[in-house]
Amino acid sequence: MHSSSRRCASGVVPGVLVSVGLLSGCGDSLTTEHVDLAGLSDRTLTYSLADVDLFEVPQAPGSHRVTVTFSQANGERCTRLNDGATATFNGQPMKLEQGGVDGTAGRDLCMPTRAIFDYNPDEWAKLPPADARIVIQDASHSVLLTAKNGQAKREFTFDGTAPLERMLRGQTYAFRWTPAGEKLAAAGASLLPEGGVVTAQMSVTKAENRISFTVPAQLGPATHLLTLKGEVDAELTECVGVAGCRGSYFHSQEQVVAVQ
């Protein structure tokens, strides 16, 4: 067990379950400080969107999720939001996790206050991109965050004249990120052979919302699983009731291709 003098530390876990400010390991004797929403007004609120499309695999919880997370308190404090607060995503209810100390893992962990919204990617794909407005409030305070195109299905589209069913070794391929107008902050591409365990990570060139990469010439001919990943910084047009806001959108998708 860890000493109770250890300071809490927040962390970030990227990937399928994109979430900011996850579990913080603290001392055994950590106690919860109960606060109303006004007590979180000095924090940073982070908006994150996970959009993970897997090929013929049941979607893991959180694969299509919006999460807004309050940063942790400074020092040895661990806060929990009082009962009575509500959170909405464009008027729809969000699940509000109040935070505080959780000792079920065998040691005290400081959980952040956050709200989550699991969306239907098929429904979002049928709609034009729209801003996302988050409202968190209780009797003491209101927090507002608006993210441009925060409600939008993201994807990479093959920048070619025909559906991508096969890839030639040594050939360069390009894809475009949608919604258009978003500039990729990070991107990746990989190929995994059917029945294999070694993934070929390819060098990706980014240009605004477009990526390109060359299939390695030394790759063996086989059926491969192509995985594309991208992340963009969210443009936040409203941030009220907290010290600051930030956000990002993450998307990954898989496709089976024949490498020849």
Rank of each mutant, 00 (worst) to 15 (best):
G220A: 15
G160K: 07
V18G: 01
A187M: 02
Q59H: 05
A130H: 13
A87N: 02
P93Q: 05
T172H: 01
R65E: 15
A174D: 01
A207L: 08
V197D: 09
R77P: 00
V52G: 01
T67G: 01
T88W: 04
P121R: 11
V20W: 11
A147W: 02
A174I: 03
Q59Y: 01
T199D: 00
E97G: 00
D36P: 03
M202A: 05
E56V: 00
M167Y: 04
Q98R: 15
G244K: 12
A132S: 13
R133C: 09
A200Q: 07
G160L: 11
S190Y: 00
G106P: 02
V101I: 14
A187C: 05
Y249I: 06
K126S: 11
L37Q: 03
A115E: 06
V16E: 05
L127T: 15
P61M: 07
V240I: 10
V135S: 14
Q72P: 02
L45R: 01
L236A: 05
S41Q: 13
A152C: 09
L236N: 04
G84Q: 07
I116E: 15
E56L: 01
L145V: 12
G103E: 09
A243T: 04
E165G: 14
D53W: 02
F158Y: 15
T113Y: 08
R154H: 15
A186S: 14
G103A: 12
L54A: 11
V143I: 15
D233M: 13
M1Y: 12
L17F: 13
V242S: 06
H2A: 12
E155P: 00
E56D: 12
A60R: 12
P163R: 14
S29I: 02
